[in-house]
Amino acid sequence: VGDQVLEIVPSNEEQIKNLLQLEAQEHLQLDFWKSPTTPGETAHVRVPFVNVQAVKVFLESQGIAYSIMIED
């Protein structure tokens, strides 16, 4: 199991704000291929294997929908 690319769908401005804060966490080494800008629009982010669980827990705790787009 390696890195994953998640497709994330924020449903409101609050969730977009939370994702932008997540993007700013440099220690997570997230690679946003497509940043969140509009509710209902997908964002794509590559998550290093060591941080996959932490990111998924965060998304679930914020009620942000996501799916695994690419499993490496």
Rank of each mutant, 00 (worst) to 15 (best):
N12R: 03
V52R: 04
P48L: 04
V52C: 05
G2R: 07
R46Q: 06
H27I: 05
L30G: 02
S35A: 13
V47M: 02
V9G: 02
E71M: 11
V55D: 00
V55E: 00
E26C: 08
S35M: 15
E41G: 05
D72G: 09
S67E: 13
S61A: 11
W33Q: 11
F58A: 03
L30P: 01
L19V: 06
V9R: 13
T42S: 13
V50H: 13
F32Y: 05
A43M: 10
V47C: 02
H44W: 12
A54Y: 14
L19Q: 00
F58D: 01
E41L: 07
P10N: 01
V45G: 01
W33R: 07
A43C: 08
S35K: 14
L22W: 11
F58C: 03
F49E: 06
Q21C: 07
E41C: 06
S35W: 14
P48T: 04
Q4C: 08
N51W: 11
Q4R: 07
Q53N: 10
Q29R: 14
V57M: 14
K34T: 09
Q4P: 10
G63Q: 07
Q21H: 13
V9I: 14
E60Q: 08
P36D: 02
E60N: 06
Q62R: 15
T42V: 14
E60S: 06
A24G: 09
E14Y: 10
A54W: 12
Q25H: 08
E23Q: 15
A65V: 10
K34Q: 07
A24S: 11
E23Y: 15
V50I: 12
L59V: 01
Q53I: 10
K34Y: 05
W33G: 05
K17R: 14
S61V: 11
D31R: 08
Q4F: 12
T37A: 07
Q53T: 12
S11W: 11
G2H: 11
H44P: 02
L30S: 03
V45I: 13
D3M: 12
P36A: 12
E71P: 13
Q62V: 11
E26Q: 12
N18M: 15
D72T: 12
S35N: 12
F49D: 06
Q4Y: 15
E26I: 12
L6H: 00
E23M: 13
E14F: 10
V47R: 00
I8T: 02
Q4D: 03
P39V: 12
L59Q: 00
S67V: 13
A54T: 12
L19C: 03
I68A: 04
S11H: 14
S11A: 15
E26H: 10
S11F: 09
T37G: 08
T38D: 07
S11E: 14
I64A: 00
L22R: 02
V57E: 15
V1H: 15
I70H: 11
L22M: 09
V55N: 00
Q4K: 07
S67L: 07
I8C: 05
F32L: 02
W33D: 09
Y66T: 01
I70E: 13
V52H: 04
V47A: 02
L19A: 01
A54S: 09
L22Y: 06
G63S: 07
E41I: 08
T38V: 15
D31S: 08
E7C: 08
Q53K: 07
P48M: 03
V50P: 13
P36G: 03
G63N: 10
D72P: 11
L19P: 01
D72A: 13
H27V: 06
G2V: 09
S67I: 10
I68H: 05
W33K: 08
G40H: 08
I64K: 00
P39Y: 04
A43I: 15
T38C: 06
D31N: 07
V45S: 01
Q21M: 14
E41Q: 10
E23I: 11
S11N: 11
V9Y: 11
N12T: 14
N12S: 15
Y66V: 03
A65N: 09
P36I: 05
V45R: 00
S11I: 15
E26A: 15
P39Q: 04
Q4V: 14
V52G: 03
I70K: 11
I8F: 04
N18T: 15
E26K: 12
S61K: 11
M69K: 07
E26G: 09
P39I: 12
K34R: 06
L6F: 14
V5A: 04
E41R: 05
F49W: 12
P39L: 04
N12A: 02
I16P: 00
P39F: 04
V5F: 11
E71W: 13
V52K: 04
Q53S: 11
S61G: 10
I68R: 02
V45T: 01
G2S: 07
R46N: 05
N12Q: 02
E71V: 11
Q15N: 02
D72L: 14
A65P: 13
H44L: 15
V50L: 14
F32K: 02
D31I: 09
K17P: 01
V45E: 00
I16L: 14
Q62A: 13
T37I: 05
V50W: 11
A24R: 12
R46K: 12
A54C: 06
Q25C: 06
L59A: 00
S67M: 09
D31M: 06
G2Y: 12
V50R: 09
E7A: 15
V1Y: 13
S35Y: 15
D72Q: 12
V5D: 05
I16N: 02
Q21E: 15
E14D: 11
L6T: 00
I16T: 04
P48V: 03
F32T: 02
P10W: 04
Q29H: 13
Q62C: 09
M69E: 04
S67W: 09
G2N: 09
G63L: 05
L28K: 03
V5T: 09
H27G: 14
D72K: 09
G2D: 10
P48F: 03
L59C: 03
L30T: 03
Q25W: 15
Q53H: 14
A65C: 06
P48I: 03
F49S: 14
V47T: 01
I8Q: 01
Q25M: 15
Q29T: 07
V57N: 13
Q25F: 09
H44N: 06
D31H: 13
N18S: 13
I64G: 00
G63T: 03
V9C: 07
